[in-house]
Amino acid sequence: MSLKDRVADILGKDLVALNEFRGDLCIEVPKGRIVQVLAKLKEEGGFDFLSDLFGVDNLDLYAKAAKKKKKSQEESEDTGETKGKESVQPRFEVIYLLLSLSTNERLQVMVRVPEDDLELPTVTGLWKAANWPEREVFDMFGIRFKGHPNLRRLLMWDEFQDHPLRKDYPLEGKGEERHLNYDIA
């Protein structure tokens, strides 16, 4: 049985979408059930190793798609109807990279996080390895992980306000400087 079928078998209804590209399997699961799904994959699927966890901001991708759509709409002069459908698409993705140590198969588990509800349950209970990656996702995208033991900024300093890896944050920053709250020298 191929990995695709096996995953579909294990997850059943929890599998929202499945996508294969160059041999890499990426599945989408509903946001609310991410911990259960990952636990299931760990126990039944044999995906016992979390190799990474990270976020993706899809803002530009949607903007591009919307532009394309608009263009095609203008061409076909078909107005109305599908307006405002893009805004429903959740902005962020969090991707869990799983690995099965026994069969050496890799699986990307993706969960979509909308901008107005930036919260996910933590998976540090399943894998301790998720500790820093979750903190990094919080640091870089502002997605909070409920139940994380120590959810502070990881890479940027504590007083930093923005979330740098979001697409609407400029590459060269907004001119933040770090000042320590006590006098040096």
């Binding site: 590209f21 890499d24 991708l61 591009k64 991707i95």
Partner: peptide, 30 residues
């Protein structure tokens, strides 16, 4: 599309996740 590829670097598994949106710049590199 999006891919993840890992090799054994001296310290261990060094992986690159690249998401491409079809343009000449990667959409996301992890």
């Amino acid at each position: 599309g999006q891919i993840y590829h890992a090799i054994e670097s001296p310290n261990g598994e060094l992986g690159f996740f690249i998401k491409s949106d079809g343009s000449d710049k990667p959409y996301r590199i992890k």
